[in-house]
């Protein structure tokens, strides 16, 4: 089990997760990015930038 880098609570990693996939910590609601898959490592996802969107 991998821990949330923000709140340290265990984060469930869905099967067939993808590199750079964005997950939400169920406990602290932080957006997390999958940095690697084997082993799984997580980091706080980048903040929304001014030009993000459609």
């Amino acid at each position: 089990m991998i821990s949330c880098p923000v709140c340290d609570v265990a984060v469930a990693i869905p099967s067939q997760s993808r590199l750079s996939e964005i997950l939400e910590c169920a406990d602290c609601r932080s957006e997390l990015e999958i940095l690697s898959l084997d082993p799984v490592t997580l980091a706080l996802a980048p903040e929304v930038e001014e030009d993000w969107g459609e």
Partner: peptide, 13 residues
């Protein structure tokens, strides 16, 4: 090309 795989990218992949 994507800097993050969000729900829509996940669906596409």
């Amino acid at each position: 090309l994507a800097c993050a795989v969000r729900a829509d990218e996940r669906r596409l992949l």
